[in-house]
Design a protein around this nucleic acid. Sequence first.
DNA 1: AATGAATGAGGGTTCATTCAT
DNA 2: TATGAATGAACCCTCATTCAT
Lengths: 214, 214, 214, 214
Amino acid sequence: MSPTQTGETDVADATGPAGGICPPKTARGQKTREALLRAAEKVFGEKGYYAASISEITQEAKVAMGTFYLYFKDKEDIFRALVAHMLELVRAHLRKHVAAAETQMDAERLGLKAFLSFVSRHKNLYRIVLDSYSVDETIYSSYFEVFAELYSRRLTRAEEQGEIVPGDAEVRAWCLIGISNFLGMRYARWKRPPSMEKVVDTAFDLIAHGLQPR
Amino acid sequence: MSPTQTGETDVADATGPAGGICPPKTARGQKTREALLRAAEKVFGEKGYYAASISEITQEAKVAMGTFYLYFKDKEDIFRALVAHMLELVRAHLRKHVAAAETQMDAERLGLKAFLSFVSRHKNLYRIVLDSYSVDETIYSSYFEVFAELYSRRLTRAEEQGEIVPGDAEVRAWCLIGISNFLGMRYARWKRPPSMEKVVDTAFDLIAHGLQPR
Amino acid sequence: MSPTQTGETDVADATGPAGGICPPKTARGQKTREALLRAAEKVFGEKGYYAASISEITQEAKVAMGTFYLYFKDKEDIFRALVAHMLELVRAHLRKHVAAAETQMDAERLGLKAFLSFVSRHKNLYRIVLDSYSVDETIYSSYFEVFAELYSRRLTRAEEQGEIVPGDAEVRAWCLIGISNFLGMRYARWKRPPSMEKVVDTAFDLIAHGLQPR
Amino acid sequence: MSPTQTGETDVADATGPAGGICPPKTARGQKTREALLRAAEKVFGEKGYYAASISEITQEAKVAMGTFYLYFKDKEDIFRALVAHMLELVRAHLRKHVAAAETQMDAERLGLKAFLSFVSRHKNLYRIVLDSYSVDETIYSSYFEVFAELYSRRLTRAEEQGEIVPGDAEVRAWCLIGISNFLGMRYARWKRPPSMEKVVDTAFDLIAHGLQPR
DNA sequence: AATGAATGAGGGTTCATTCAT
DNA sequence: TATGAATGAACCCTCATTCAT
């Protein structure tokens, strides 16, 4: 799954002799751009957006400083591209693990579990997502909005199929996001972490009974 | 409720003109320190930690740059003090509104509502709490840990009194924090915000049924 | 031997509401001034003129910052007073130890030894003397000029009394100062320091034979 | 003789835009670095280490402030490099003038003279060497240790060849350094400077007779 | 005589971005 | 396409000195 280029497309008004950043035209250029994104994930993830410097990224990617600006407009641009990229990774991961679900609530359960397994392996994702709030509140919001819509759709469907008791899908969606988000964030950092099974069971029990028809 | 001085006490070895930060010895000094904290709340809240400069804070507080360093070691120090201060505010607000509750679940409901009303009036709290993650992950964590303990205790008590079905109190606590946190964060920014009544009802319904004995 | 007040007397043009620094009139004031000088010796000696701050001195002396300016015009003023004070100490020490000498060359020998013993007990003297060069070259020069005159007079007398071969007293004086100064500076810091006896013997042998009539 | 890079090599862990100070990779970079060192010699020499500011140095070198940090870690770093550079200059000068000497004591005489001629043309060297003491005592010490070894070796050889009476070479070395150092320092600043011939003759007479076999 | 809060100019340092090659 | 030197605005922080009490 290649990284999207959200950042660049937003800046049609880019000025400058070279006419702004354009997607790489050669295979070599493609390689360089990807190396920069990979480096950005590492550096932003480890040090945070503000503590990280572009030169650290270029060093990590083993290119010269000037090269950076051939592919990204500025520091924020690469960060946006990175967040979009990470979002894609999460969604792909969830899609894969939820595919086998037979009911909406089953999907919910599998999704929760998949999410926990994802973040426990990508702890840096959190640093990046949270940093996005200080960079530009809308990046942060849009990140979660993607999930809000996903959850809303699922809840609506579940309601239609009589799996759950009727209720405001949007509010419930935010509740579910809140649950998985906090569990995910805490899971990796727990003092004495309970087994993932147990976490998922406890949380899903709450959710399932909270929503089930009565 | 006066702001705690977490930050400063950690740095007894600080060097500086006056031999490091020392608590103000006169009433005038106390006033100045508080003015700086108030200014910091405004500036950090509006612009975010990294975009804010110390000189903005001192200008807002109407003191000279150097005065800042009489009371705080650096930008991070005042930020820590501020987070601690805000945490106190939230807790005091919750304490007040939950006092009247007769059952634990009643307390849960009142607390959720109180939290939403608090954050809808202190939108800056969010920016500050989220920024704390980039400043120092542990500030962020410790902020939520306070609530985790509060919720855990309440859930344990509820379980003892037969109000809810048995289950892991810690995991459930993080679920509840996730819910109130995300609802709080979204509530102020909702496109077409539903009434707070409705949000609280929907969320509490989920929680109450999710936990109730069966 | 009380510290001289070189600094203040040089600044008759001091301006300000209080009409400049005036020597303390009360016994209490005298005490405070001396405490400041003692503190200055410690702080300047340990950290160097530029690394030391006035607040360190006032803290060491256990007085408030403002008090400093009741007794000294500024940082440089107390430093000058301190150098003058130290110079007095050295001279007094030498005077005492040289008193018993019967010949000029005997005085030379005893003086060299006394100087080494003085600096090996007052290592900070060196830091202060050398710092004086960056503060104001003339402080440094005047410090050594005192010794140059002392040596010149002694050499002239020695020559008159036939103890030594005739020669330019001033140049020789600087040679002797150079010798005692460098030995003094090195003595305390020697890797495996030879006995002071040996150092003095070796150096005096060179000097005595270098100057003796032939 | 190019300046050594003592300072920089010590700080491999330096952080910074370009990942710390690295030796210039292009001829242009080399030029700039040298311009900075030349500027530093002028500015430090004229104003002293503490009174000099980095921006003065960069202005003198006609480069932007930021450029400084491409080649030097900080003010102290360039100062160390400068001292090392000056030391090289002195040694080269001495080597050249002493080469013709036939005996060790002849070398001593030529060296003394060469040293005086050097410092009378490079008066700033003194300010720099003396300032080095306040910057870091070890710079100052290491500067003189180079000469101590040089003198020690020469004296040992002289002794072996029967040119001088036996004695502790190290103590004598410090005596000789003291002499040339103080004469050098005073020579340029003498009120009514005696001819250099006379100074050298007087001092060498003292030294030669002080050491000659008897 | 003493206090300690307040001042603010001044300097060091960083780093995103540009530019010449 | 790539390089890496150069830029300079922006900001943090220090500390000698003044001032009100």
